[in-house]
Computed example of a mutant assay.
Amino acid sequence: MRPWALVTWLANADTIRVFKMNKKEDGSNSFQPLADDFPKKHKAPVINIGIAETGKFIMSVSSDTTIIIWTLKGEVLSIINTNQMNNTYAVISPCSRFVGSCGFTPDAKVWEICFSKSGQFREVARAFELKGHTAGIHFLAFSSDSCRMATVSKDGKWKLWATDVDYKQQQDPYLLLTGLYDEAAIMPCILALSPDAQVLALASSNNIRLFNTKRGEEEENFHKVHGECVAEMTFDTTGRFLASCGDRVVRVFHNTTGQRAIVEEIRGLLKRGPTETTRQRLNQQLVQAQANLKRLGAAKV
């Protein structure tokens, strides 16, 4: 979908403002604010906002227990009470179907934002919960296809979940892997999940660690990447790069952990005895991935 709007939270004005993208005569783009800001509905500070990839709705979450689903014009579609005592984070899934939230309680909650075939909003329905942590959850993230989710908790652990389930048939998400992240027990932290869910990035203070989600092993550790705490992280759509922001600076890292995961996956596929055509294609991909690692000066190729 071609981007057409920029959604912002104005802390001083305590409101959401949408800027519409306009094409200029010289071919460049400019952003102009819509006539009216969103009404002030939150009673606590907003901690995250997001816009669905489909462009059908906007989500805002505040630090109490409130999530609001809006139209792009600022009309309230639904107000969700998470019942988590307080929210620490909420996010829209890349498929635009779900909103996931976490907070003081040890369970992450996911809702489905339901629209009719004609595009009319119908309801917000409870989809499923991720149960297994023993303390409040700092942060959660989806993979690009929304089939995997990751959480990190005050219990000092991170977890990877399979969420490609039919919850309407009473199927529950299931745990794939649990890893250790001691920093989470003593300070707030954030995470990012690579598009293919093969790499988990965790940040606390101004340090970032990258984990392989097949074995739960830490493979990269970047110290003091910002002068202040890491405020946000994200992988690009290809999974080749990880970007972090903090202290008004954005830093971009090569995802060598992801390249190693690709090598490992291809080698596993080759051991299964594929057809000759498939073998040739896999070998080409393997050579390319190994060349990328060599170019980056990464070990374990």
Rank of each mutant, 00 (worst) to 15 (best):
Y174S: 06
Y174E: 03
L175A: 05
L175H: 04
L176F: 01
L176I: 11
G179N: 03
G179F: 03
L180N: 08
L180G: 11
Y181L: 10
D182N: 12
E183G: 15
E183K: 14
E183H: 14
A184V: 13
A185N: 10
A185H: 08
I186T: 06
M187E: 09
P188M: 04
P188N: 09
P188K: 09
P188V: 14
I190M: 13
I190P: 08
L191P: 00
A192K: 04
L193R: 02
L193H: 01
S194T: 00
S194P: 00
P195Y: 03
P195V: 00
D196Q: 05
D196L: 13
D196I: 05
A197M: 05
A197E: 12
Q198F: 01
V199M: 14
V199E: 05
V199A: 08
V199T: 09
L202T: 06
A203Q: 13
A203C: 02
S205F: 13
N206R: 11
N207L: 07
N207T: 07
R209N: 01
L210F: 12
L210A: 11
N212R: 12
T213K: 01
R215H: 13
R215K: 11
R215S: 08
G216K: 00
G216Q: 02
E217S: 12
E217Y: 01
E218N: 12
E218Q: 10
E220F: 01
E220P: 05
F222V: 02
F222K: 10
H223W: 10
H223L: 11
K224H: 12
K224S: 15
V225M: 03
V225Q: 06
V225C: 13
H226R: 08
C229L: 09
V230F: 00
A231F: 08
E232T: 07
E232A: 09
M233D: 03
M233E: 07
M233L: 12
T234V: 14
F235L: 04
D236Q: 03
D236G: 06
T237L: 12
T237G: 01
T237R: 08
T238C: 10
T238D: 09
G239S: 03
F241V: 04
F241R: 02
F241K: 09
L242R: 00
A243F: 05
A243S: 10
C245Y: 14
C245K: 09
D247K: 15
R248F: 15
R248D: 12
R248I: 11
V249W: 11
V250W: 00
